[in-house]
Nucleic acid binder design. Structure first.
Lengths: 186, 186
DNA sequence: GGGTACATGTAATCAGTTACATGATTTA
DNA sequence: TAAATCATGTAACTGATTACATGTACCC
């Protein structure tokens, strides 16, 4: 019964948000919300509610017939646990955990041209992600401009912009004068 | 013998970088380099080299007397594994995993004034981290301006700047007109 | 010479990942 | 009606976290 994990609060929060939910419901919601910045493998969305139910923070109800789906509801204790967590702002630092950055960090031990390819690859990844966020942002600004949760996507946008800037600068530094135009015109 | 993890490559990379190392050496190095963006608990720095040695990627040598410290060296196979990993740019996305952002995401289910306190707390955390990076950056620009690994700290700087911007904007939005100067001068 | 911090490791637990498995719908 | 995809779960493994434990050096 060790203290609750981040996953626990994600589940509690989502059940609070969405009302009674099955693990599959949670999976769906995660995939188009929190999952962008904090992924949870679907097997955890089956395992974690079981733990939370044991701890009395969720109520579990199982279908009689058919698939015997389990539906989870927030208990009062669960709601209280969520409030308590929210009331205590975390001081934990963000870890970037950027796989590309890791590869750059050790690039001295690879081949000469790895970093250029790395920068190209990473630029593509981040640009794609940035585009996704911008689109979501535009959509949310229309449909739910005031909600706090809506704001979170801006955090992603700034982060991706920083990443794009970083890799672009690296690329510029690594390919000096390479503008696509031959430097010695024939 | 499942495929190598990120931790594996961190260990391989650090041993490549630092030469023969004990787990404690690795712990020290991690704490003032990679650890800033990809932490590794020290117990892993004991466990992982054992696995890598079994896989033939590190060579293990144990002291005879005293503490019987174990020192690890890169084997040819290890060097090759590192090269191979570096040659294949990761396409995996970065996950922000910002605990504060998680709390903001679910803030609707907490108390009214949680978000303001959250923003203050997070601003402090990110400003502090930003200052650290700026200092490291200044130092590295003098001592090792060319190395690629040196560049990684800029990634951190941009990321922290984005974070500061985000939380500051949130704070501004939540405390409109609160400039420290009373709005109705007496 | 007693406390405190650094150095060095092990053990137990548990969360997370991966893989497997199968029933229900849709679609071609 | 076969194939593909969605829905719904379980099982096994293993890496990561936490806690424990002890030796050594330094400092007051």
């Amino acid at each position: 019964m060790s203290s609750l994990t981040r996953t626990s609060y994600i589940v509690l929060g989502l059940v609070a948000e969405c009302g009674p939910s099955t693990p599959y419901d949670l999976k769906q919601v995660v995939a188009r919300s929190v999952g962008y910045f904090w992924s949870v493998p679907h097997s955890q969305l089956y395992a974690e509610p079981v733990r939370l139910a044991e701890a009395g923070l969720l109520h579990e109800q199982q279908e009689e017939g058919g698939r015997r789906r389990r539906t989870y509801t927030l208990t009062d204790a669960g709601r209280e646990a969520l409030r308590a967590w929210l009331a205590e702002p975390s001081r934990a630092p963000v870890e970037l955990r950027d796989p590309g950055l890791l590869q750059l960090f050790f690039a001295d031990h690879g081949d000469r041209d790895d970093p250029v390819r790395l920068a190209h690859t990473r630029l593509a990844v981040h640009r794609e992600r940035l585009a996704t966020y911008v689109e979501i942002d535009g959509h949310l600004r229309e449909t739910a401009p005031d909600e706090l949760a809506t704001r979170t996507v801006r955090r992603g946008i700034y982060a991706e912009e920083g990443a794009v800037r970083f890799w672009q600068e690296l690329l510029d530094a690594l390919t000096p004068g390479d503008s696509g135009i031959p430097s010695q015109p024939a």
